[in-house]
């Protein structure tokens, strides 16, 4: 089984699960139709997805590591929201925005996208632009820029995608 075939099958499986979730029934005709519809759609849409989809290499270990980090990400989301709330409710509006350059040493495209998503979810930072290795980050206050430069987040992403060796 080639790499492309494997990925098409994974896509078809996801679509099939989605079909079952939406159709709410387990009778044979429905599952049969869903199976072929999923296969048909994934083969037809493959030419659209292949450029981006082939770079993504997710195995079970990476998925498991990602699940371990979920708790920390949810904690970050809560912290980010309470921080925005505090700043917005304060009559003085205590913000001092700045744009900083963050140079990452990640290699793949998918890890970089995940890093940018994590930066946006972190309190006080927003990934603005992307150029090769450099991410431009808008910080709502100076202390968040310092926190970002400690590179904890990048190390986390490296750990998830096993690039830390």
């Amino acid at each position: 089984m080639s790499k492309v075939d494997k990925k098409i099958r994974i896509l078809a499986l996801l679509l099939f699960v989605f079909w079952v979730a939406l159709s709410e029934s387990f009778n044979f005709l429905n599952l049969f139709l869903g199976f072929f519809a999923a296969l048909f759609v994934s083969y037809c849409s493959w030419f659209l997805l292949k450029e981006h989809f082939l770079d993504i290499n997710i195995n079970f270990r990476i998925f498991w590591r990602f699940c371990i980090c979920t708790g920390q990400i949810i904690k970050d989301i809560f912290r980010a929201n309470t921080d925005v709330g505090e700043r917005v409710m304060d009559p003085r509006l205590p913000i001092s925005p700045a744009v900083v350059k963050f140079k990452s040493s990640l290699s793949g495209v998918f890890p970089k996208v995940i890093l940018a998503a994590f930066i946006t979810l972190k309190p006080g930072t927003l990934a603005v632009d992307f150029e090769d290795d450099v991410i431009y980050v808008h910080c709502i206050a100076d202390e968040f820029a310092k926190e970002l430069m400690e590179r904890k987040l990048e190390n986390l992403v490296k750990w998830i995608f096993e690039e830390d060796k």
């Binding site: 925005v84 709330g85 917005v88 409710m89 913000i95 925005p97 709502i140």
Partner: peptide, 27 residues
């Protein structure tokens, strides 16, 4: 609601996006 107040009170696009994206996700 915090996100909406943030969009109204904050001064420019970038800082408004902080309120818009983050509060949207958690809310």
């Amino acid at each position: 609601w915090v996100g909406v107040v943030g969009i109204i009170r904050l001064p420019d696009v970038y800082s408004r996006l902080h309120a818009a994206t983050k509060c949207d996700i958690l809310g």
